[in-house]
């Protein structure tokens, strides 16, 4: 309990640093680009356009009965991109913070946390793209969309947990950086970003249906779609799976990170 209190005090003292680091990343990301922050919207929009074009014409996946495929697709894309960006930038956060933590005492978890927060900020900006796609395709705005906060918040915690683990591991083994990219690509294909496993036909679909439930990302994306696209209230299963994955990831992440953090300085 006392430790928890010390942690909170630490965090409170350094909240402005967190704020400033996010501000710095933001400035640096868009410095010298003409359109600046518009890219956060434009980028997912263009990506969505490409994927819609590919999947609805060349590889005909729309036949599998997804209403409003563009919205379905962009939701999957945005959430998965958030996860991808959050974890892979958090992973290298300790390495890039090396000049700092070698010289001053700063609670180290602030760096992965900052990266995940920054990814969230980006993600929130790119929700404008989602709104645009919904407007263009004439999708209804459901009141349940407000509930989308839940899958997003739990996904944030989930990503933070994974990010903490990766950040700690990467300090000791740089290989993980290269492996993680491959892993997330594989994961993307099993997260139902551009298909619906429930209505998909074909022989392998049965197999996919039985396995996809083990992928946390599938649940977060599914929950988000339920509220925003279909106007449904989250069902019990989605609620507890989202929460459970988030809590497990965070607890594991904190344990791994805490047990290793004093050694970071010696290895970076």
């Amino acid at each position: 309990m006392r430790m928890l209190k010390a942690y909170c005090q630490d965090f409170w003292r350094f909240r402005f640093l967190l704020q400033n680091l996010i501000g710095r990343d933001f400035k640096l990301k868009y410095r010298r680009s003409v359109l600046g922050v518009v890219w956060s919207v434009l980028n997912p929009l263009l990506m969505c356009l490409v994927m819609v074009a590919v999947f609805s014409s060349i590889l005909d996946m729309r036949g599998s009965g997804i209403d409003n495929f563009p919205v379905y697709l962009i939701i999957g894309q945005l959430l998965f991109n958030f996860f991808n960006e959050a974890t892979s930038t958090a992973m290298s956060s300790m390495l890039s913070a090396a000049p700092l933590i070698k010289k001053v005492y700063i609670p180290k978890y602030i760096f992965p946390l900052e990266r995940v927060c920054f990814a969230l900020v980006n993600c929130l900006f790119s929700f404008i793209a989602l709104v645009l796609v919904m407007l263009v395709t004439g999708a209804k705005l459901h009141a349940t969309a407000i509930l989308a906060v839940y899958p997003l918040a739990t996904l944030f915690i989930f990503s933070l947990g994974i990010g903490l683990m990766l950040a700690a591991a990467t300090v000791f083994f740089r290989d993980i950086m290269h492996l993680w990219g491959v892993f997330t690509t594989a994961l993307m294909y099993f997260s139902a970003v551009f298909y619906d496993p429930m209505t998909m036909g074909g022989t392998s679909a049965e197999l996919l249906r039985s396995f996809i439930g083990y992928n946390p990302m599938y649940w977060y994306i599914k929950g988000f779609r339920m509220t925003v696209l279909y106007g449904q209230v989250l069902d019990f299963n989605t609620i507890w799976v989202c929460a459970l994955c988030a809590v497990i990831a965070l607890v594991l992440g904190l344990i791994v990170f805490r047990s290793q953090q004093d050694k970071f300085v010696l290895h970076i």
Binding site: L17, K27, P99, L100, K103, V104
Partner: peptide, 28 residues
């Protein structure tokens, strides 16, 4: 210990004053 820990060379001096200040635990 080493001056300017937490300076970001791409940011301006003004921005760095705030960044470094918060690194040292000061409030904006």
């Amino acid at each position: 210990i080493e001056l300017g820990a937490g300076f970001d060379m791409d940011l301006t001096a003004r921005e760095n004053i705030y960044l470094n200040g918060t690194v040292l635990g000061l409030t904006p």
